Amino acid sequence: MLTSLITTKSFLLAFVLLALASSLASAFDPSPLQDFCVAIDEPKNAVFVNGKFCKDPKLAKAGDFYFSVKMPGDTNNPVGSNVSAVNVDQIPGLNTLGISAAPIDFAPYGQNPPHTHPRATEILVVLEGTLLVGFVTSNPNNTLISKVLNKGDVFVFPIGLVHFQFNIGKTNALAFAGLSSQNPGVITIADAVFGSNPPINPDFLAKAFQLDVKVVKDLQAKF
């Protein structure tokens, strides 16, 4: 009887540990349990959930799964690029499906500055032009892994790592990014550090980046 009780307790403990490990390993968007879950605005005073509430599947229509991206995107800006995000905010039908996309237009010598996607791995396909792309590994090595891409080339940026794209050609370039989250998020490094609201203390940033505090204040004014 005692042996049987110990065996049962051991089985239950193993089951709980496996269930816990499974939940901890689920780091990406959860798998859907139905054909689709077209997002709707949360009801008034609802508790926040990781995702969106769903409309009745019987009321779904083609427009819930469609979005038109204006081509080419406006690259008349300081960095010379335009990222057209296509995520659950643009296509409600992406809710729970774990993917999103982003066409990226580049003017000659335009760039998509160093940034990260905290919730997604990115795969990039070059449709036109020539891009220099790369990402930096995490501490302590901070190794730059970089490559020049031409039309038809594909490159992957691992989740969470700082990465960039730069049009090194004299003509416009176009790329298409796929991301492994319905809402991957984006943190542009310079914007986050020098353009935070309220601003980070410039004396702190000056020490962190080994810069004169006047340079930091100038950067903060720009961002």
Rank of each mutant, 00 (worst) to 15 (best):
L2W: 00
L2K: 07
S4D: 05
L5P: 00
I6V: 11
T7H: 01
T7P: 03
T8D: 05
T8M: 06
F11H: 15
V16E: 08
L17Q: 14
L20D: 10
S23I: 10
A25S: 12
F28K: 15
P30Y: 03
P32W: 01
L33A: 13
V38Q: 03
I40L: 06
I40G: 01
K58F: 01
L59A: 10
A62C: 06
D64A: 03
F65N: 08
F65K: 08
Y66C: 12
K70A: 13
P72T: 03
D74C: 04
V79C: 02
N82G: 02
A85M: 09
A85V: 10
V86Q: 04
N87C: 11
V88C: 01
D89R: 09
Q90E: 15
Q90D: 14
T96S: 10
L97K: 13
G98V: 04
I99W: 00
D105T: 01
A107E: 10
Q111D: 05
P113R: 02
R119S: 07
I123P: 01
I123L: 14
V125M: 13
L127M: 11
G129A: 04
G129D: 05
L132K: 15
T137H: 11
V148S: 14
L149C: 06
N150K: 14
N150D: 06
G152H: 08
G152T: 04
D153M: 12
D153E: 09
F157Q: 09
P158F: 04
Q165C: 11
I168L: 04
T171V: 09
A175D: 09
L179Y: 00
S181E: 09
Q182M: 06
P184E: 07
P184Q: 06
V186L: 04
T188F: 06
F194P: 04
G195F: 02
P198V: 07
K207F: 08
A208V: 11
L211D: 10
V213K: 15
K214T: 15
V216R: 10
K217M: 12
L219T: 03
L219D: 09
Q220G: 13
K222M: 10
K222N: 11
F223W: 06
